[in-house]
């Protein structure tokens, strides 16, 4: 749970940095993003990392589901009254629900990009002037549709919450117990989660308005 989660956190950082290229002026952004994307797809190392990523997602979701079910079995009867808001955050009590919302996002997201570009499903994808697959165009055409813009932006809220608790929690699961370090980690988790949620959430909007 923790190891796969942290790997996904790392992936998100790389993913967001790359996506910020999309916001540059079109003349540079299109060529740069497409050639970056092509380079990644052709590199053997990145291919291996990509399989590690798919495996991490499957393991994280599968193991998360198993743990959530096992933990529910450990508490089969709930309290009639439970004011857990007084002793813990709502986020920490609802990681399974938040994770499921992230998964919903992921399914739509992969259908929008991964399935079209890597699996060649759906509408065909053109080439740019350099002969690279025009991923830039896929993004810009998708975010002409306001429904997708709103969907992408809204679902970054559960992502941010999931990451905020998940990052701290993962370190403690792995045995990081330095008291001062944990206080710093709590702040880092908040900043990290905010950057991811706002960063990923705002890109579709800017693209839509451009």
């Amino acid at each position: 749970m923790a190891l796969t989660g942290l790997f996904l956190c790392l992936f998100l950082m790389v993913h967001l940095s790359a996506n910020s290229i999309l916001l540059l002026p079109e003349s540079t952004a299109r060529a740069l993003y497409n050639s970056y994307s092509t380079t990644l797809r052709e590199s053997l190392l990145v291919k291996i990392v990509a399989y590690v990523l798919y495996l991490s997602i499957l393991l994280h979701v599968g193991y998360g589901l198993l743990i959530t079910l096992a933990n529910q079995r450990a508490k089969p009867k709930k309290y009639a009254v439970n004011t857990f808001g007084e002793n813990s955050s709502w986020t920490s009590q609802n990681m399974g629900l938040l994770g499921t919302m992230v998964l919903l996002f992921l399914v739509v997201h992969l259908a929008n990009f991964w399935a079209r570009i890597k699996l060649g499903m759906g509408a065909g994808v053109g080439m740019d002037a350099q002969g690279h697959v025009d991923v830039y165009e896929v993004t810009y055409s998708l975010f002409q549709n306001l429904y997708f813009v709103v969907f992408y932006t809204l679902l970054m809220v559960p992502l941010g919450l999931h990451l905020h608790h998940g990052l701290k929690s993962a370190f403690m699961t792995l045995g990081f117990y330095h008291k001062k370090g944990l206080r710093v980690l709590a702040k880092v988790s908040l900043v990290y989660a905010a950057i991811m949620a706002i960063g990923f959430g705002i890109i579709p909007f800017i693209v839509y308005l451009k």
Binding site: A70, N71, A74, F84, M95, K168, T173
Partner: peptide
Amino acid sequence: FGSCTFTGA
């Protein structure tokens, strides 16, 4: 017993 997910309660 279930496993810890660090709710902090």
